[in-house]
Amino acid sequence: MTHLPYILASYGLFAGLAGILAIGAALRLKAARTKLATLENSALRRSGAPTSQ
């Protein structure tokens, strides 16, 4: 294959960038979901309603 380093660099850059963005978004989503669930459960507990836990 001709120009292999340039091709590998392009695909590598894409894979790296896509991986960082996707993993970053997934981790952020998971953290936000956990925090929101905790807060909503404690708010429900305070109001006396039955919680999901």
Binding site: A25, A26, R28, L29, A31, A32, R33, K35, L36, L39
Partner: peptide, 12 residues
């Protein structure tokens, strides 16, 4: 995914 996280963070 980022927008869903942002909406949840704003609710938090």
């Amino acid at each position: 995914a980022r927008l869903r996280a942002a909406v949840m963070e704003s609710r938090v």
